[in-house]
Amino acid sequence: MALIKSVSRFIASVPIYMWLLFILLCASFVLNPLLGRDPNRTDTSEVYTPPSLAHPFGTDSSGRDVFARVIAAVKLDMGIAVGSGILAFLVGTLLGAVAGYIGSLPDTIVMRLFDVWQSIPGLLLGLLVLSVAGKGIAPLVGVIALINIPVYGRMTRAELAVQRNAAVVDSARLSGVPEWRILLVYLLPQGFSSALAYFPVQAGFAISVAAGFGFIGLGVSPPTAEWGAMIAAGISDLLFLNVWWTTLFPGAFLALTILLLYRMGDWLMRHD
């Protein structure tokens, strides 16, 4: 019920930064086809042209339009964030719910597993797995989910450890509702709602991690437009050629997206 209520309220009063995110995402899908721009089209006659009307964010070392690339990257980076978020959310809440609801030995095992899991700093855990799983979007999504599973797990576990002693659980049990049904139908949705409020914050974190991996060359393969990879490619332009638009525009969009997601998370937590 809490879930439905928060969703209906969500629709009723959407703050400005959510609209901004929405517009950004829509623009990413429609703007390039609409304007006939191709983020990967190179043009050797227009290398490093500064921002102008034809190229609002200028062009990069291969004459590609930076605006088209920055906009195209929105859906990719958001996709990685949301994909990894959903994966981490599902696995994490399920593990946490089982641990919190059953308690005793399963609880101890899952919590110790999380301890070990989190004893490796997130970024290094990602590097470890990526070093064997290889580069690409799918491994990246999996790795970022992997970093976040314990966070969701702990959150849901804390919630359910309290909830399992609630009166509704006792009455359900007395009326012969099977245990798995109590867990999945009565308790998990409540565990969900607190974890759900954390989702945008996690997505913001996921984007910065994804861009970080892209930055060190472990994300998407070139020439795919991705903020981290674009910034990495633009460093030498910035530091040695004084060409600022190839790094600062993707950087600004990256920071803006993270900021909007964090704001959204704040808002959801306050309205939970």
């Binding site: 913001g204 910065s208 861009a211 970080g212 930055f215 981290g228 910034i231 460093i235 910035l238 790094t247 950087g251 990256l254 920071a255 803006l256 993270i258 900021l259 964090y262």
Partner: peptide, 11 residues
């Protein structure tokens, strides 16, 4: 929180 580490370093 909004500016990732690597971006801050570059800035």
């Amino acid at each position: 929180t909004a500016v990732p580490t690597f971006l801050l370093g570059i800035l």
